[in-house]
Each structure stands twice: as C-alpha cells, then as structure tokens.
Measured scan of single mutants.
Amino acid sequence: MADQLTEEQIAEFKEAFSLFDKDGDGTITTKELGTVMRSLGQNPTEAELQDMINEVDADGNGTIDFPEFLTMMARKMKDTDSEEEIREAFRVFDKDGNGYISAAELRHVMTNLGEKLTDEEVDEMIREADIDGDGQVNYEEFVQMMTAK
C-alpha cells in the first residue's frame, strides 16, 4: 500500500514521523504519540494510545517504525480525509473560533508540534493556502489545501 505514495508524500511523512519521534530513535512510543496528540489539544487515554499503536504495529514490538507509519498514512489517505476530520483539524488551528486561521494561530500550532518556523515560513504557508488574498485561511481554503492532490 505504501508503494502507491509519491516521493514527495514519503518525504512529508518522514518529516511528520520525526515530529512524533521525539528522541530520534526511529520508533514512536505511546508516550511520544501522547505528547504530540496533547500538543494538538487531544486528550487520549493510555489505552487509546496503545490501541492506536497496536493498529499499525505490524511486528508487534509495541512501537511504530517508519515503514509501519507509512502504511498507516497510506491507509488513512485511501479513506481520504472525511469532512469531519478536516473540520476537526481546522478547529485545532482556529484557536479563537472566528472561522479563520491567522498567521499567529498557525505559528502557535506548529510551535506546539515542535516545528520552529520563521515568520517568513509561516507567512508563506498562509499565502499558499490563501486563495482570496485576505491574509488568513478560511474553512473553504483549508479544505482545498487539505484535499489538493
């Protein structure tokens, strides 16, 4: 299944994987998964984290390695993001709930994920998604960005 991913997608997933893999040992533990999910405003229980890991832990060693992570991402993409997942993601970014993602809100979430971005990089990300040019990202623009192939 992971063989249907483009090189660009694999590179993006590698970057995402390293955000989860806090200690850089090449595997994601339940603790690391929990840290990232909490930084995104989720509050999973230990059991939920274990279930999430077990779902993709092909070799049964209790952690997720990069090939397992790729399989999980490929699977998720095949079920292409349901509207509800996209709306949920939008809410994570839209901290003040005004229906727009500002540069400050984007920077806040990315920083929580451990991504240190310059102001230019954040502005560039907003510009790429900002179709109507108002300097922020509304829900429609967010959907376009998330579903762009």
Rank of each mutant, 00 (worst) to 15 (best):
Ile126Arg: 04
Ser39Ala: 10
Ile28Gln: 01
Ala129Arg: 06
Pro67Trp: 08
Pro44Phe: 08
Phe13Ser: 10
Met37Ile: 12
Glu8Gln: 01
Glu141Gly: 12
Val122Gln: 00
Thr45Glu: 15
Ser82Ile: 08
Val122Pro: 00
Glu141Ile: 05
Phe90Ser: 02
Thr29Met: 05
Ala2Thr: 12
Arg107Asn: 01
Asp123Lys: 06
Met52Ser: 06
Glu7Asp: 14
Asp3Tyr: 06
Met146Gln: 09
Glu88Arg: 02
Leu113Ala: 02
Val56Gln: 13
Ala74Arg: 06
Val36Gly: 08
Met52Ile: 11
Arg91His: 07
Gly41Arg: 12
Ala129Asn: 02
Ala129Leu: 04
Arg38Val: 13
Phe66Pro: 02
Met37Pro: 02
Thr147Cys: 06
Leu117Lys: 01
Leu19Arg: 04
Met145Arg: 03
Ser39Lys: 04
Phe90Asn: 15
Gln50Asn: 08
Glu7Gly: 13
Gly62Thr: 01
Leu40Tyr: 01
Gly114Ile: 07
Phe142Gly: 01
Arg91Phe: 05
Ala11Trp: 07
Leu5Asn: 03
Val36Leu: 03
Phe69Trp: 03
Asn98Gln: 03
Ser18Tyr: 09
Phe93Met: 04
Glu88Val: 10
Asp134Val: 06
Arg107Glu: 06
Asp65Lys: 07
Leu70Val: 11
Asn98Pro: 03
Ile101Gly: 02
Asp3Pro: 08
Gly60Ile: 07
Ala58Gly: 07
Leu106Met: 04
Ala2Trp: 03
Ile126Met: 14
Glu32Ser: 15
Gly114Thr: 04
Pro67Ser: 10
Gln42Val: 01
Ile64Gly: 08
Gly135Val: 07
Glu85Arg: 13
Glu7Gln: 11
Asp81Lys: 03
Ser39Gly: 06
Val36Cys: 07
Glu141Asp: 10
Ala16Trp: 10
Gly135Glu: 10
Met146Pro: 13
Glu85Pro: 00
Asp134Ala: 05
Thr45Ser: 10
Met145Glu: 06
Asp79His: 08
Glu115Pro: 14
Leu70Phe: 06
Asp81Glu: 15
Arg38Ala: 05
Glu88Lys: 11
Val109Phe: 13
Glu115Cys: 06
Thr147Phe: 05
Thr80Ala: 13
Gly135Ser: 14
Ile28Met: 14
Thr30Met: 03
Thr45Cys: 03
Met146Phe: 15
Thr45Asn: 08
Lys149Gly: 06
Gln4Leu: 10
Ala74Gly: 13
Glu83Met: 07
Lys76Thr: 08
Asn98Ile: 08
Leu40Trp: 04
Leu19Ala: 14
Tyr100Arg: 09
Gly24Phe: 10
Met77Arg: 12
Ala11Ile: 06
Leu19Thr: 05
Asp59Cys: 15
Glu55Lys: 10
Tyr139Gln: 01
Thr35Ile: 13
Phe69Cys: 02
Met52Trp: 06
Glu68Tyr: 05
Phe17Cys: 01
Ile10Ser: 11
Glu15Arg: 03
Asp23Gly: 13
Leu49Arg: 14
Ile53Arg: 13
Leu5Phe: 00
His108Gln: 11
Thr118Ile: 12
Leu117Cys: 05
Tyr100Leu: 07
Ser18Asn: 15
Leu70Ala: 07
Ala47Thr: 12
Ile126Val: 12
Ala11Lys: 14
Met52Pro: 11
Glu120Thr: 02
Ala103Pro: 07
Ile86Ala: 08
Lys76Ser: 07
Lys14Ile: 00
Met37Ser: 03
Ala89Gly: 00
Ser82Pro: 05
Ile10Asn: 13
Glu32Gln: 02
Phe17His: 08
His108Lys: 06
Ala74Ile: 01
Asp96Leu: 02
Met125Ser: 05
Thr29Ile: 12
Leu117Gln: 07
Glu46Thr: 02
Gln144Arg: 12
Val122Asp: 06
Met110Glu: 02
Asp123Ile: 14
Pro44Gln: 10
Glu55Gly: 12
Val109Gly: 05
Ile126Asp: 06
Thr27Asp: 06
Glu115Val: 10
Thr118Gly: 01
Met77Gln: 15
Ala104Val: 10
Ala129Met: 08
Asp3His: 06
Val137Thr: 08
Thr147Gly: 15
Asn43Phe: 15
Glu12Lys: 10
Asp132Gln: 04
Thr80Val: 06
Ala74Cys: 03
Asp130His: 07
Arg87Met: 05
Asp57Ile: 03
Asp119Trp: 07
Glu84Ile: 15
Glu55His: 13
Gly62Trp: 07
Asn61Ala: 14
Asp94Trp: 02
Thr27Glu: 06
Glu83Arg: 01
Asn112His: 08
Glu46Ile: 14
Met37Arg: 07
Ala74Tyr: 15
Ile86Lys: 05
Leu106Trp: 13
Val137Glu: 02
Asp25Ala: 14
Thr80Phe: 04
Thr118Cys: 00
Ala58Leu: 01
Asp94Cys: 10
Met73Glu: 08
Gly26Asn: 02
Ile101Phe: 14
Thr118Ser: 11
Thr27Arg: 11
Gln136Val: 05
Ala2Val: 12
Ile131Leu: 12
Phe93Pro: 03
Ser102Asn: 13
Glu115Ser: 05
Gln42Arg: 13
Val137Pro: 12
Ala16Ile: 14
Val36Pro: 01
Glu124Ser: 09
Gln136Pro: 07
Ile64Pro: 15
Glu55Pro: 15
Leu33Lys: 00
Phe66Glu: 01
Met125Gly: 07
Arg38Gln: 06
Glu85Lys: 04
Ala47Val: 10
Asp65Gln: 09
Val143Glu: 14
Leu117Pro: 08
Phe142Leu: 06
Arg107Lys: 14
Asp57Ser: 05
Met125Asn: 00
Val109Ala: 12
Tyr100Asn: 12
Asp79Cys: 14
Val36Asp: 09
Gly133Glu: 11
Phe90Lys: 04
Glu84Arg: 11
Arg87Leu: 08
Thr30Asn: 04
Tyr100Glu: 15
Asp94Pro: 01
His108Pro: 09
Glu32Lys: 11
Asp123Asn: 12
Asp3Ala: 06
Glu140Asn: 10
Gly62Ala: 14
Asp81Gly: 12
Asp123Cys: 04
Ile10Trp: 12
Thr111Trp: 02
Thr6Phe: 05
Leu117Glu: 07
Met73Leu: 09
Leu70Thr: 01
Glu83Ile: 01
Asp132Thr: 03
Arg127Gly: 11
Ile86Asp: 14
Val109Thr: 10
Met72Ala: 02
Asp79Pro: 08
Gly97Trp: 01
Gln144His: 09
Asp3Thr: 03
Asp134Ser: 03
Gly60Lys: 15
Thr71Ala: 13
Leu19His: 04
Arg91Trp: 04
Thr80Arg: 08
Lys22Met: 05
Ala2His: 05
Met125Lys: 01
Val36Trp: 02
Asp65Arg: 02
Gly135Ala: 11
Ala104Asp: 01
Asp21Ser: 10
Val122Phe: 02
His108Cys: 03
Gly133Phe: 04
Arg91Ser: 03
Asp132Pro: 00
Glu115Tyr: 15
Ile126His: 09
Lys78Ala: 04
Lys116Val: 09
Tyr100Pro: 00
Ser18Thr: 10
Ala58Phe: 05
Glu140Lys: 10
Ile10Leu: 11
Gln9Asn: 00
Asp3Asn: 09
Thr71Lys: 13
Ala74His: 07
Asp130Glu: 10
Gln50Tyr: 15
Asp94His: 09
Leu70Met: 11
Ile126Pro: 00
Ile10Pro: 14
Glu15Lys: 08
Gly34Arg: 12
Tyr100Val: 04
Ile101Met: 02
Asp79Val: 08
Glu46Tyr: 01
Asn98Ala: 10
Ala47Tyr: 03
Ala104Lys: 03
Gly99Tyr: 09
Met146Asn: 01
Gly62Asp: 10
Val92Tyr: 14
Asp51Ile: 08
Asp119Ser: 14
Phe93Thr: 14
Gly99Asn: 07
Asp57Trp: 14
Ile101Gln: 03
Lys95Ile: 04
Ile53Leu: 15
Thr63Gly: 11
Asp96Thr: 14
Glu121Met: 01
Ile131Arg: 13
Lys76Gly: 01
Gly133Met: 09
Glu141Asn: 01
Phe17Tyr: 05
Met77Phe: 06
Ile86Val: 11
Arg75Met: 14
Lys78Val: 00
Leu5His: 02
Glu12Ser: 06
Ile101Leu: 11
Asp134Asn: 13
Thr35Met: 02
Lys116Asn: 11
Leu33His: 07
Asp123Leu: 00
Asn54Met: 09
Glu85Trp: 00
Lys14Val: 01
Asp65Pro: 14
Ser82Tyr: 04
Asp79Ser: 05
Glu48Gln: 04
Ile131Cys: 07
Glu15Asp: 12
Gly135Cys: 12
Asp21His: 07
Glu84His: 02
Asp51Thr: 06
Met37Trp: 14
Glu85Asn: 10
Tyr100Gly: 15
Met72Ile: 11
Phe66Tyr: 12
Gln4Tyr: 10
Asp59Leu: 14
Phe90Pro: 03
Glu83Gln: 04
Ser18Arg: 14
Asn138Leu: 02
Ser39Met: 10
Ala11Asp: 13
Met72Trp: 11
Asn112Cys: 03
Asn54Tyr: 13
Glu83Phe: 03
Gly99Trp: 08
Arg107Leu: 13
Asp132Ile: 00
Val109Ile: 10
Glu88Ala: 07
Thr27Ala: 12
Lys149Pro: 12
Gly97Ala: 14
Lys14Asn: 08
Met52Val: 10
Asn54Gln: 06
Leu40Phe: 03
Met72Thr: 13
Ala58Gln: 01
Glu115Leu: 00
Phe93His: 12
Gly135Ile: 03
Asn138Lys: 11
Asp130Ile: 01
Gln50Arg: 14
Thr45Gln: 15
Asp57Glu: 13
Asp65Thr: 15
Arg107Phe: 03
Ile10Val: 10
His108Phe: 14
Asp130Gln: 05
Gly60Glu: 00
Asn43Asp: 10
Ala129Tyr: 03
Asp130Phe: 01
Val109Tyr: 04
Phe90Trp: 15
Glu140Val: 09
Gly41Cys: 08
Gln136Trp: 01
Val56Pro: 02
Ala2Cys: 06
Ala103Cys: 00
Thr118Leu: 08
